[in-house]
């Protein structure tokens, strides 16, 4: 059963910036591209650090420690960096000015 959890209000998630939040104890980050909002796991699988502290460019979030890159739409890792596992990707819905995310899964 997919449980929706409120994680942000819509205007907290702005283009060009990561919004760090959490869903039932799991660190996640929200990203906006136009009208779409994405949610992916926020802990780098290489060493434990929050990806949302990193650099956001061209649909990729770059880990602040060793620059592994992840697609903000899917959580997929870009190969060749220090990390070689994806982060989870969450289903997102917007309702009444709030952002809700469902169960996470690997792409």
């Amino acid at each position: 059963m997919n449980e929706w959890v409120r994680v942000a209000s819509v205007d907290e998630v702005v283009e060009g910036e990561a919004f760090a939040s959490e869903r039932k104890g799991e660190a996640i980050a929200l990203y906006r591209e136009g009208d779409d909002i994405y949610a992916i796991g926020d802990v780098c699988p290489h060493e434990t650090v929050r990806l949302s502290e990193g650099w956001l460019e061209n649909g990729l979030i770059e880990c602040p420690l060793h620059q592994s890159c992840f697609e903000i739409r899917t959580g997929k890792v870009i190969e060749g960096g220090a990390a070689y596992e994806d982060v989870a990707c969450y289903e997102v819905k917007v309702e009444g000015g709030s952002v809700y995310v469902g169960e996470g899964r690997r792409p």
């Binding site: 502290e53 990193g54 650099w55 880990c63 602040p64 060793h66 220090a82």
Partner: peptide, 10 residues
């Protein structure tokens, strides 16, 4: 070299 912390600063 795979990466280094704060390549982009803080």
């Amino acid at each position: 070299l795979m990466g280094l912390p704060f390549l982009r600063g803080a």
